[in-house]
Design a protein around this nucleic acid. Structure first.
Lengths: 217, 217, 217, 217
DNA sequence: AATGAATGAGCGTTCATTCAT
DNA sequence: TATGAATGAACGCTCATTCAT
């Protein structure tokens, strides 16, 4: 017996196969994009036949859902593990989140994956929901530090600041992400982000968040 | 000229039919996403037959290229028109750019379009190039005001700051764009962005941009 | 130009192709049965590619519907043409209908087709409807002669007699139809049917149709 | 014995599992039609896995054969039990057969099953054979009464009359069977059939069966 | 005896593209 | 210029069957 029966399921081969399919599916999405996200390419990527992929995931939709669930979990776990270390000040923790995120954005995996997910979320309620859940977690973590650094802010204001901090980081993806035109400027970007976003978290006031209804036209 | 010289004149942009096709194509991409971006749906959208779309754009790729060229032009023109008004200070202009961008991000058109383009740019050199050209223009404009507000910065530093400002705005797309989970918080986001990014432009120093090599793991 | 442009449609080839497809589809249903009624076999039968069949009939259901509509029409036309001849008595006309039907039942086409349709009608409302419409026509024609031969019967009684006559004939299909075990006894069957059903039409009374609620249990 | 001797005993009809499968298979054929007659749906219907159905019936064909064998047996037994009662005249027995058959035809089971079998018999020798065997039995029973009621007829003539009587009844299936358009007229049909077919059996002559070669066009 | 896993063939359908009209 | 017709490839999915467990 080659595979360890560490997962649910009677036969070890089955759960191993499911893992291979999920891994291959993610790889296809990352390496070839959502246009190429077909059962045939996924099957080819893990040396299987289409029918077998269909056997384990009777609907393509199911494969996508399991894949995204695991993906969001793994990103959440990564964040928790790296950030929630004892003995660090809120400021230091916020700085670490920022650096962690921007480092991660430089990976091909994250650059490609999240741009695909943002696009898919436009027309898929399921993807939109998974993306929302993930960022709720991220914004929640960032918000904790903001609240600690700036106790005068209301919960809603804290969330707005967290949104801004997160957006400032995520917005680097199409500019400085993997393979993007200004990827080489990520060090400067990271330095600026860490400094200015931490400074913002500490100094932002309710007034800054209560501008007039912003309109130009 | 990219197109085969055997059909001269076809791509004159004023042509009624070609314009209809391009308009329909953009509408499909925005309303239905890149999965649905097929010649059939485009043709249906402008009451034509598939064959006619294929006649005017012998390769689907050509349609995408012409469409994107026009798109980038139109976005660039919009920006120029709104921003480059006489009699405004650099600070006011920068503030206006920020408000303009964030307003625009709230439209379905921009929210859907740019998320799609960021994803397509992962695997299409042409899309990547058009996106790059567009943002070069945006960053150039922003950089002008930054340089004026903060003359101590080098050209490269100005560009880094412009990148950060632009990223902070673009990053709002998947969070507060059209139909996104926190769209209702765009007013607070805009107020915060206008205040903090203008402040950043005025106060950032070379030191802020020269942090240690940012690494965690 | 090979084909005459006698049918609607801009190009003659198209309507000719549609005819070929319909002919091939019917041939597959007759020769291979409803299990083999697939686009691929239909296409193969008329030397086409699957995509072309799909082009002319975007949904398989459409192909079935057009095929059945034409089929019912053609059977109806056949019946009308052969039966409604001038200068014949009602009795002679009824006899001719019977002989015509039983002759027709001996063809492979009719034997196979109607047994398939009866089965398909169990689970397809569309097929059930087409079959019903066809037999309404048949029963109507038979009823005319019955009413003339037996003026004492009410319209409903006439219909009941027509149903019986028609059922007596149709019931021969699985026994004496093409390739069926007792096909060789069709002459005797026809003689008996012609004699006894005409006799029935002339002599049946309201009383014969008003038996007690027939139950055995 | 048709089945491979390498798995002796599997086909003992009393086996619980095999019985469940056969029952489920029949139910699928009746309720969903031959299109839906797949191992998957059969397995689902008896809460088994496809593999288990395949284990008990290594070929789908075998399942069909065993199912049909049992089916024909059960119909034959039903007929024998109900009809062969002591102390009845031949005429009364014939009347009972007619009523029994027409009652039975009104059940969903018989309506659906026999229409399916007639169609399947077109392209399956095995089905054709089972159907033939079943009707031989029916025609034999009917023929007994006909012979008794009409001793002047030869054996072949008796068979022809039995065929006609049986066909008259079976032909009601697609018209007045379960869910068919004129199901509500079955009482009148039954009354007419009982009266006229018994009358026919008693009065038919050799001459009625020896018509000219029946041909029209 | 029963099931999970896997395969290869086939299904209806959609696609971009070509070509004659 | 515009369209009907046709093609070949690919799509997600279902099927009967095989085999190791």
């Amino acid at each position: 017996m080659i595979f360890s029966p560490s997962r649910p399921g009677i036969y070890a081969r089955g759960t191993e196969t499911v893992d291979q399919i999920l891994k291959a599916a993610l790889a296809v999405l990352i390496d070839e994009g959502s246009d190429a996200f077909t059962l045939r390419r996924i099957a080819a990527r893990c040396d299987m036949k289409v029918g077998n992929v269909s056997y384990h995931f009777p609907r393509k939709e199911m494969l996508i859902q399991v894949m995204l669930d695991e993906l969001v979990d793994s990103y959440g776990a990564m964040m928790d593990k790296t950030v929630r270390r004892p003995g660090l000040t809120a400021e230091e923790r916020l700085r670490r989140v920022i650096i962690l995120c921007l480092d991660d954005i430089q990976t091909k995996r994250t650059t490609h994956l999240f741009t695909e997910l943002w696009a898919l979320a436009n027309h898929s309620d399921f993807v939109a929901d998974r993306v929302r859940v993930f960022y709720e977690r991220v914004h929640g973590a960032i918000g904790e530090y903001v609240a600690e650094l700036n106790p005068a802010l209301s919960a809603d204001e804290v969330h707005s600041v967290a949104l801004f901090i997160s957006a400032s980081m995520e917005g680097s993806t199409p500019f400085l992400g993997h393979g993007k035109p200004w990827a080489h400027k990520m060090p400067a970007f990271t330095a600026l982000a860490a400094t200015s976003l931490v400074h913002l978290a500490k100094t932002v006031t309710s007034r800054d968040l209560a501008g007039l209804m912003a309109q130009t036209a």
